[in-house]
């Protein structure tokens, strides 16, 4: 914009509100978004935990027992419980968002969102069942 205002004595002055640091706390949908962003930390934590478990396993039974010992502490149980909640939250919201990013068309018609999200859930349940069978049954 040119700023040569010889007619108006007054120069246009726009008011721009500063976005608050706590913008995410003011609206439930924003808060949920921040929770989802945060959930990735817990997903990462589970990955690291599994790496530690594998490492311990390769070091022999003693070191594996030590890590199992730690896993039984109330702190670890609480941490893992919270992480589980966050991971579930992450998974479900992620699955529900797939139809947005990957619309599928069959015969010229866009499939309804649930049809795209459903296979994710099915795969999840099946894989969980197989893992459970290994862990508990096997």
């Amino acid at each position: 914009m040119k700023e040569t205002h010889n007619y108006t004595l007054y120069h246009p002055k726009w008011y721009r509100e500063r976005v608050s640091t706590y913008w995410w706390a003011r609206q439930w949908s924003y808060f949920r978004f921040i929770l989802r962003e945060l959930s990735s930390i817990f997903v990462a934590y589970f990955v690291v935990l599994i790496l530690f478990l594998l490492h311990a396993l390769s070091q022999g039974p003693e070191s594996y027992a030590a890590i199992q010992e730690w896993l039984r502490t109330p702190f670890a149980i609480t941490l893992n419980f919270i992480s589980l909640l966050f991971t579930l939250f992450h998974t479900i919201t992620w699955f529900n968002l797939t139809p947005r990013a990957m619309p599928v068309r069959i015969g010229g018609k866009r499939l309804p969102d649930w049809m795209i999200a459903a296979p994710n859930y099915v795969a999840w349940v099946v894989i969980s069942a197989i893992v459970a069978w290994f862990v508990i049954g096997g």
């Binding site: 949908s29 924003y30 978004f33 962003e37 968002l97 947005r100």
Partner: peptide, 9 residues
């Protein structure tokens, strides 16, 4: 875009 998704809503 961090996919807040509010625009669509």
């Amino acid at each position: 875009c961090t996919f807040v998704g509010e625009c669509t809503k």
